[in-house]
């Protein structure tokens, strides 16, 4: 049913919605990396704006970065001695989460956008949606948050474990450009840690060709934090129960494998809006609203 509906106005709405989201993602990437000179000089921005946390994963060692990565900043406090409670960073995270939830992932995260761009590269073989073990792997990001972002920095002095051992955004946005631009001027030798992180980055790039946002789905600790806010965030999905025909069109197009007709504000929903455009009955709406209309879907 939904295949035949993906023509005419529904398809146009989907395309224009996707275009609009891509432009917002591109603008967010540019704004968060507006120190363009850094990409030529190999020097990072050192102005006062860097005391402000950005909403998504964007390494503050990227030559273009003009803000601070919230996950890096969080670890800075937890890994300092004596340990400091990170009120400031938690304040940013709670505000971003409560206002936008995982819309941050869908609209504002530069590393999420990069993965999406890679995923758009056409392949001769079909892209992979859900697979056995997918659901269990999604829980891995909560483990990454608890172990690499919180536990290890608390027990290992001055070690931001997530940044050091895993973060592919740091390698792509900070490590690779700085090594290329500064080369021998770096005071530290490039060793096995750099090559291990580079291998993780390459693996994720290859996976992104087949899977939609593999880092966001399985590993991102920031996505894990924002997912906890999805059910209470101001920017949210508002379904109209009486309009839903349970045709399955929304679930079929969801790149995060969520069924919005069952759980419109699911923890995995990044608010990309593909389902709202695909719904032939116009039963799904994304936006800011505190209204509690008749929003429960009737039983199938």
């Amino acid at each position: 049913m939904y295949c035949s509906r993906r023509s005419g106005s529904v398809w146009s709405a989907s395309v224009s919605g996707e275009k609009r989201r891509s432009w917002i993602q591109f603008s967010a990437l540019l704004i968060q990396n507006a120190n363009f000179r850094g990409f030529f000089s190999g020097k990072i921005y050192q102005g006062k704006l860097k005391q402000v946390c950005v909403p998504g994963i964007n390494c503050y060692s990227c030559p273009g970065a003009v803000g601070a990565c919230p996950i890096g900043s969080l670890q800075t406090f937890l890994a300092s001695r004596p340990v400091k409670l990170p009120y400031y960073v938690l304040g940013f995270l709670i505000l971003f989460g409560t206002i936008l939830g995982r819309a941050v992932c869908g609209f504002l995260c530069p590393f999420g956008f990069i993965q999406e761009l890679i995923h758009r590269i056409p392949l001769p073989k079909k892209k992979i949606g859900a697979f056995p073990g997918d659901k269990a792997l999604r829980k891995l990001k909560y483990g990454v948050l608890l172990v690499l972002v919180i536990f290890l920095p608390l027990v290992m002095d001055y070690t931001p474990a997530f940044c050091k051992y895993l973060c592919p955004a740091g390698t792509l946005e900070g490590g690779v450009p700085l090594v290329l631009l500064q080369g021998g001027k770096l005071n530290f030798p490039i060793g096995s840690l750099f090559y291990t992180k580079l291998a993780i980055l390459i693996l994720l790039i290859v996976l992104s060709l087949f899977l939609f946002r593999p880092f966001c789905k399985y590993l991102c600790p920031l996505g894990a934090i924002y997912s906890l806010f999805n059910r209470v965030s101001l920017y949210r999905m508002r379904p109209e129960a009486e309009k839903c025909t349970h045709c399955g069109a929304c679930a079929a197009v969801c790149p995060m494998q969520v069924d919005p007709s069952v759980s419109p504000n699911h923890v995995e929903c990044i608010r990309c809006g593909k389902c709202t455009a695909a719904c032939p009955a116009g039963a799904l709406h994304l936006g800011f609203s505190a209204k509690n209309k008749k929003e429960q879907f009737p039983p199938v």
Binding site: K50, C59, Y60, G72, T76, G174
Partner: peptide, 14 residues
Amino acid sequence: VLLKAVRVCLECIG
């Protein structure tokens, strides 16, 4: 946050 962000984070870049 500023002090950490204005220096190249060696852990971040590997």
